[in-house]
Amino acid sequence: MNDQPTPMHAPDLPGLSAYLDGELDAEERQRVAIHLAACPVCTGRLAELAALSTDLRALPEESLGFDLAGVIESRLAAAPRRTVARRRRDWWMGWPAAVGSAASIAAGVLMGSALVTGSAAAAPRMAAMRVFDTMPPGNLCVGLESCYVKGSVK
């Protein structure tokens, strides 16, 4: 994008697209705005981008049509050992003694590391990684760390 617009030039599409999204810094934004005021080609291109955005946002919204949350809650209640749960009595209190003790031993193994280290990061994070270890490669969420806001990662 030039400050002196020529009648036929290729618009800086990433620049216009980011301008539309409000993702340019103040200096870049001003530069694009000044250019747009004098360039019908880029103004037309921006109008197309804006129209596409408006249209996509106006598409009919699908919904599940049922309460998945209720289904998930039932599934979790049926398979409680997967959670690192402080409130474990919720699920094993009512069990026959033999089953209950076997289950609590097994659960203790799972929960031990998390309880020993309290709220420290190491154990739960390892538990989370184990979850993904059991999945096929396509499911690997190796980048979960990148979900963290920059600067907050230790």
């Binding site: 998945l68 997967r82 990061a121 994070r125 989370a128 979960l144 979900c147 963290y148 806001v149």
Partner: peptide
């Protein structure tokens, strides 16, 4: 459904620094 079950399994590893929505959508 699978996404939410996986999210539940991975939840112990979630940190308040992460935005829940981006974590879930990932």
């Amino acid at each position: 459904q699978e996404t939410f079950m996986k999210a539940h399994q991975a939840l112990p590893g979630w940190r308040p620094e992460a935005q829940f929505r981006t974590w879930l959508f990932r």
